[in-house]
Design a protein around this nucleic acid. Sequence first.
DNA 1: GTCTATATTACGATAGAC
DNA 2: GTCTATCGTAATATAGAC
Lengths: 207, 207
Amino acid sequence: MHAEETLEYRKPDRKPATREPYTLDRLLDVAVRVFTERGYDGTSFQHLSQASGLSKSSIYHHIESKEQLLRLGLERALEPLMATIGEAEARGGPAIDRLRFLIRRNVEILTDRLPYVTLLLNVHGNTAPERWALEQRRAYNRAVAAVVQEAVDEGSLRADVDAKTTARLVFGMINSVREWYRPERSPGAERLADQVLSLLLDGIRTR
Amino acid sequence: MHAEETLEYRKPDRKPATREPYTLDRLLDVAVRVFTERGYDGTSFQHLSQASGLSKSSIYHHIESKEQLLRLGLERALEPLMATIGEAEARGGPAIDRLRFLIRRNVEILTDRLPYVTLLLNVHGNTAPERWALEQRRAYNRAVAAVVQEAVDEGSLRADVDAKTTARLVFGMINSVREWYRPERSPGAERLADQVLSLLLDGIRTR
DNA sequence: GTCTATATTACGATAGAC
DNA sequence: GTCTATCGTAATATAGAC
């Protein structure tokens, strides 16, 4: 007779967990938060297990692989971001106005989906989903650079710095917001977008 | 009898290597390049072996651990960066001039030590050297934010956006240069610094 | 839906020959 | 200074009980 059998680990009585069962969406939230904190490659299933409270193997009930978790997270960032390109085109009007729209929407999406966009902006291209995301980002960058070029051509933006460099620096500033923005402590998306737009358009100097 | 044994892999004939022996400095250059491409956690000794042409174990002749490579790489970025804080203080004069100096030097160091600074700006804090580097960066950010605050107080910079946000956005734009700058194709450090300073101070809009 | 147990592979690091 | 061979561990992923 073995101790395991006699004790039976109080199995029938045991409440399996006090929390509600995980859905893919809830698990994704947890995983992407850890990905943004530790980086995708720096995150193991053990980290995901600790953060979620699930065992390593239970995570596989919701997903097929770690890469799938990454891909789902990247999609959450890219979907609204890529959509703004079409929305800006549909607006028509002066390029400078469409650029303002793109900048404002970018700040809004960044603050609204902070961990997902942070994940997107930190990928290296080591896996297939990462390479796909980088290609999407390149398409986004090309589209916004084209609008910047239009705004230069229509005389709204300075022509002494080439449009490509301006576009890179402008969206580089915006994207850097991910490194310090905290929803609970930082200004809201609208106010932050106002500040970013104002500094970008008119400069930081007094006049 | 096994094929492996009969062929013997031409071992006696083989020239062990045609290249000159590695020094720690040359190995560090290779390693940091791979770190910036794949991320530190995404880089294995197999990757380092392929990139260097050394066997995995030969790398250990030059270093004691992977973390040591990381630490040495981070030091190469932090050393000149932290030095600029003291240099700016020593200059004295109006805060706006010291800020221009800090921005210009930051762009120069970024382009001059691109892979090292890129490595620094991408660390997550998963290891001891990373946490040390993050603390150094916080000290750097505090110092430049203080100069921005001085420039606001002296009336050189706009006061309608708080100094901390301005500092973060300014250096966020500068640091984003790492994501696209290529020494062989991009403008030189001086010209790029001129463009960055001009856009930051006066804005992207025509006037 | 979650668990324990395990398979398999890749990782960082070491030993010792040349 | 570089190599081959190997160690111990931790990684992703699977099997099967409950």
